[in-house]
Amino acid sequence: MTVSTLSTEAVIGPDLARLWKTRHDKERFQLSSLTLLTPAFGLLIILFLIPMGYAVYLGFTNLTLVGPTSVQWGYTGLQNLSRLRQDTTFWSSLWVTAGFVGGSIAGVVVIGYLLASLLMRARTWMRVVVGGVVVVSWMMPAVTAGMTWYASTIEGGALGTLTGLHNTNFLDNWPLVVVTVANVWSMTGFSMLVMGAALRNIPSDAIEAAIVENASSWQRFRRIVLPLMRPTVIAVVLLTALLSLANFGLIYIMTQGGPGNSTNILPLYSYQQAFTYNNLAYGALIGNVMVLIATVFGVLYVRVAAKS
């Protein structure tokens, strides 16, 4: 049998063929949409791009909070950037930030998952009570969480009393660990809620099938639960990173970045430069570095969110 090849135009005619060739599965650009987008663009420019651009510019000036350069200040080129490169306190602060954010991510994800999976198996009343308590710790303002943890971890605090180590000052001896644990404590509620919702969405027949196939609980977790929860875990990781990176209040209240520079994360160092040492411009530059780091996490989060 011979199969003849006919063009689309020949079968349905040129007008319909043109319509047929138009892709409907791709976004199309219409010039008129610009008019509708203008107000949003305007707000974006006024409320974000201009202040952000100004902050970037300030990072390259000699503006101070007090003194002659608080009145007459100007562009100083790459001077601040060169200083930043050689600033050992900045690099140590960057490492402290990495430790704080990394520790917070690990704690928030693991404890959030454990709490969520335990609550899945718990009785309803227990789920409500435990869930409620954890969520309250999440909703607590940083000032309250900071004060609570400060009072609990200094010498004679609740932690010393509970562990029998009355004379141990946990906060001064292990400052970065204590502030990271406090941050984990304050953010686990959010992680637990999100993980709980993801766990409830895992199809029970997949788990049941695995049980029938004699899969161990570790295998079920690794092969079924974890892959299905991957987008949620990544979202929690990225949001925890972003929120921890901006968590100025908690550490400021507990240690003000001390003792020494042991908890001096970047937001605190930026504040210290701008308002303790009066170097507004250099503080702005450190703030810009934080924006860059946050942007990386932000872009990753948006990409993960779009995929899922």
């Binding site: 400060y150 200094i154 010498e155 004679g156 000052n169 001064d172 240690t255 003000q256 001390g258 003792p259």
Partner: peptide
């Protein structure tokens, strides 16, 4: 003095 007092906020 102990640092718990010296470093007290």
């Amino acid at each position: 003095a102990p640092i718990s007092d010296l470093f007290s906020e």
